[in-house]
């Protein structure tokens, strides 16, 4: 199978990546090359095989329900591009 330009544009939008029509063309070529490589795995019969999400099995370890003192806000927010009154500022959120 191979992707179309509209696939590329849809994915780019989902991923919030701006692409010019020229980028889209180039990316379409690259992605189809890469998916050509990826398609090779379809040759392997995997009927009845349990998908493996983690390299080592086992169960999730849980944390005791205790809150801790946090790194101060001034330190955790110091890299913010825009902040005021302890808030991160973003272009208006419309709901």
């Amino acid at each position: 199978m191979s992707l179309t330009l509209s696939d590329v544009e849809r994915i780019a939008h989902l991923a919030r990546i701006q692409i010019t029509p020229a980028d889209a063309e180039r990316m379409l070529g690259e992605l189809n090359g890469i998916f050509g490589l990826i398609e090779q795995m379809q040759a392997i019969d995997t009927t009845g095989i349990e998908p493996m999400a983690h390299p080592l099995g086992g169960a999730q370890r849980l944390r005791a329900d205790e809150h801790q003192t946090l790194i101060p806000r001034d330190d955790t927010m110091k890299n913010a591009p825009a902040r005021q009154d302890g808030l991160f500022l973003v272009p208006k959120v419309i709901e």
């Binding site: 989902l14 992605l31 998916f35």
Partner: peptide, 28 residues
């Protein structure tokens, strides 16, 4: 490029053919 590949293989309709398939081969 990786974000585009990843977004595509997880997107609706392709998840089983790519992501699940890959995880099955990973187990093999």
């Amino acid at each position: 490029r990786r974000i585009m590949i990843g977004t595509y293989v997880l997107s609706h309709g392709y998840y089983d053919a790519y992501y699940i398939k890959a995880q099955q081969v990973r187990r093999l």
